[in-house]
Simulated assay, not measured.
Amino acid sequence: MTTPRARARNKRGEGAQLREEIVRAAGTLLDGGDPQSVTLRAVAREAGISAPSIYAHFPDLDSILLVVAQRAFAALEQELAGPDDPDPAERLRAISVAYLTFAERQPHRYRLMFGSVWDASRARDRTPALADDLAVLGMGAFEVIHRTVAECAAKGLSTSADPFADATALWVGLHGLAQLRVATPLFPWPPHLREALIGRLALLV
């Protein structure tokens, strides 16, 4: 039987630090590549605490994974907002490349974000208190794409008549490409597929 790593007791007022350590422990286990290993017991062991100690900070594993997913989406949003090209069409292309790069660089967190590791809809059903946070999960990152497609349309660089729908189509396309490149690495991917995908789905002129 394994026991938690020895850990000094938190001083009064250090509960926020322990909460952070719990989230970090879940992320470390997730990055290890085996989603089945991310359990409350394993998180507690990684954080160097007893499993019951988690309940003072999180009611269940879903609540921990929600924070991990929120932070991953926040990191994605920050990267998508990075390109500052004054030409919105070029910026949209750079945003799309940043999206695919993030998915490639953070494969396990990306899978968590989009349900391959953790089913957010089931989490909502199991823990109704999470519903509001789950409803807006990832919307900040999507809004960067939406806003840029809308700017392209406003400047005549896209024929989009419905930027929200076309931004959604682009998001779906990027997600599909990110997932398929991992699932079928031996497929003879066309060299200019990414550029064609972005241009067609965003209706760039």
Rank of each mutant, 00 (worst) to 15 (best):
D60N: 14
Q78R: 13
H175Y: 10
G199Q: 01
A89C: 00
A141K: 02
T159M: 10
E46D: 02
A47P: 07
D84W: 02
V205R: 15
E79I: 02
E151A: 14
L170I: 06
E90C: 09
L112H: 00
S160C: 03
A26N: 03
W171E: 12
W189T: 04
A196Q: 14
A153K: 00
M1Q: 12
L100G: 02
I54F: 06
H57F: 13
R122V: 07
G33V: 07
A154N: 03
A154E: 14
F114V: 04
H192T: 14
A98H: 12
L203T: 00
A202Y: 07
A165K: 12
L137F: 03
P35T: 06
D34V: 15
E79M: 10
D87K: 08
R147A: 15
L134V: 12
L30H: 07
L201H: 02
V43F: 12
V68I: 09
L193I: 02
D34C: 13
R194G: 11
T28L: 09
M139Y: 10
L180D: 08
G27E: 13
L61Y: 09
A196T: 14
L197Y: 05
A69M: 11
T39R: 09
L112Y: 04
P191I: 02
R12W: 13
A44D: 11
A51F: 02
A42S: 13
